[in-house]
Nucleic acid binder design. Structure first.
Lengths: 198, 198, 198, 198
DNA sequence: AATGAATGAGCTTTCATTCAT
DNA sequence: GATGAATGAAAGCTCATTCAT
């Protein structure tokens, strides 16, 4: 990418980032089109390539940016060590709804990145995604898992939580405006039900 | 679709079904191309449109067919009422590996259908998918859930199981030939670990 | 390229060949555009790629075809061994004007091929062009050079003839309809003047 | 063009002239790109259009400049009347190698101008090129052609010389640094061989 | 004077779809 | 019934040109 992108006004940077994020999040890498980005955020076709060289380059930048930004926010807003796992997990979802103020499609984009399986971007996605997953694991390790001591069981359980929450998130995006309150309520209910079992 | 498709020799029907299934399962609706189907199963481009009118029409037929066929097989091969949930779940996976004999990509296609989010097929997918999920729920209700009596908890748990199994299935398809034995072993291990918790 | 091109009606093959030949001859590889070929010969954009895969592939086919066709015609129509060099050279130009009946831009295309210096086609041009030059040398060797016995001198002299004739040919194409009679007259005059010197 | 170009420091003028000359000489009018000029000589995109209005305008200026400059140099450095034609022709090539000190790509650019056949610049090239050819003819008329008295024969012969020399020049530019000595040797050998014939 | 961000028309190429045979 | 030649809209990308700073 062209480093001069960072010299643009913050506002314009975010307009472009949000435009690309929305289109990529909704359609995935392959089906996302430059024309749609033009329509969504009014920045001309040529400019995308002026700064990002190719569609792959743009996706690479966007994915790295989104993963880094999310990780930073998670670390900043949820850092009390030894927190109860379920509380931490809920706080993370609150955190996501806060990020939506700046980048409305970020949480959906994060999910879409993890599900992306287009050959053209596997390579560029590999490192940032690995680092994100590593940092995420580290963050989750600081939690207090109560009676859930066995490692294998914990992995299975947290996987369930993750998949469920992702599904709820996707559901939220199906409505015209993301229903933050309803989403958080739903997440809370699910977490509580599960905690009860232990 | 053109009903005359059913007048074709069963063999040719299945050639076409398997061709479309493979391409759709591997690439998803949008990225699947008519040319690839021609390449994969040697049936001419024109014939697809002769019988199915459009790509959407073909996908609609394929999805309905796959969902119905799978449901039928599940019902035929796993019907002992009051079976232990984890045993039933494992039997279903055995059932999938049996279906692979006739339709090698069917289990992957089922997953891909559930993850499909292309606007053009949301509409046609809605009803058959809803019916499939309903039938599936009904089937699963016949199981014996042991101590897992509360409904909400049960939903969350079975979701986890479903997501985990889907992930293992996808992994299996990444190798050249699907490793049935290894797959079933892995499923069994995961189910056992979970059962232990209850 | 797709071998099925040869199964098309001869007439359509020649329509496409003439369309591509005209545009490539006039504009060279890089500046030639598919849109112009559509305009010139009414064959749709997609069909060029159906048969030739890429612009490079099309150029490669066209160049090979033109070089082979020209060489064949030269050999068929000018084969009397021991002919006087200047007569042979003139016969070749007659031969070119005859080829124009079938492929109006062939002689200009031959010149343009030899002057082509776009990187993308150097590779595919190398072999057919080398063979053409070799065959051409062989053909010219059968001529009777009279008093022009020294090899180096002969090369320089025939180069002059070639360059002059190419220039006259290019000039002819600048008018709306190629003026065959005037062209042949001009060639004859030049050749005679040179012969006189020896 | 904007006359203020001449108010720039001579050094900057030549930087721009050399940048444009290199890119035009190497790629021809159409294929030459503004971006490459920026890369080659570090002068911003906007400035080219500030002084030259359009790509055509720039090419027009560059061609006129190159043709005038070359003609001036030829006249200044080779003016002894009644010189033997072959000696004069050789002196002109020496003259070209001297020009390379100031404008490394000038001789190649001169050739490329004569071969340029892009419609967009035919018009602007017409007059300066005609004048250059006229002046050149005049210059060549001062030479002593020895036994080559007939006008028509002389034209053909000198054409041959010109084409051969152009080819040698182009060959020289294919190496990383232009091999002046080798080039001049080669020209001398060719001229001598031809003179022998007369 | 000088920059380079910004534009949009035009390029090559892909692909669902049509239709003559 | 079956084929695949034929189409054209839309994709990713390039590039001469404009213009605010």
């Amino acid at each position: 990418m062209n480093e001069k992108f960072y010299s643009l006004k913050k506002e314009k940077q975010d307009t472009m980032i949000n435009g690309a994020m929305e289109v990529f999040a909704k359609s995935g890498y392959r089906h996302a089109s430059t024309d749609e980005m033009v329509k969504v955020c009014g920045v001309s076709k040529g400019l995308w390539f002026h700064y990002f060289e190719s569609k792959t380059g743009l996706y690479s930048f966007m994915a790295s940016y989104a993963l880094k930004y999310a990780m930073l926010e998670f670390n900043m807003r949820t850092m009390k060590e030894g927190m109860d796992y379920f509380d931490l997990r809920y706080d993370m979802e609150i955190c996501k709804t806060i990020m939506m103020n700046k980048y409305p499609y970020l949480p959906l984009f994060l999910i879409s990145i993890c599900e992306e399986n287009d050959e053209d971007v596997q390579e560029v996605l590999k490192d940032p995604l690995a680092r994100y997953r590593e940092d995420m694991s580290e963050l989750m390790l600081t939690a207090d898992y109560g009676r859930l001591l066995d490692h294998e069981d914990r992995v299975l359980l947290t996987d369930m939580v993750d998949h469920t929450i992702d599904a709820l998130m996707k559901e939220g995006y199906r409505t015209a405006a993301f229903p933050k309150e309803r989403y958080l309520d739903s997440v809370r209910k699910h977490l509580r039900a599960l905690k009860k079992l232990l």
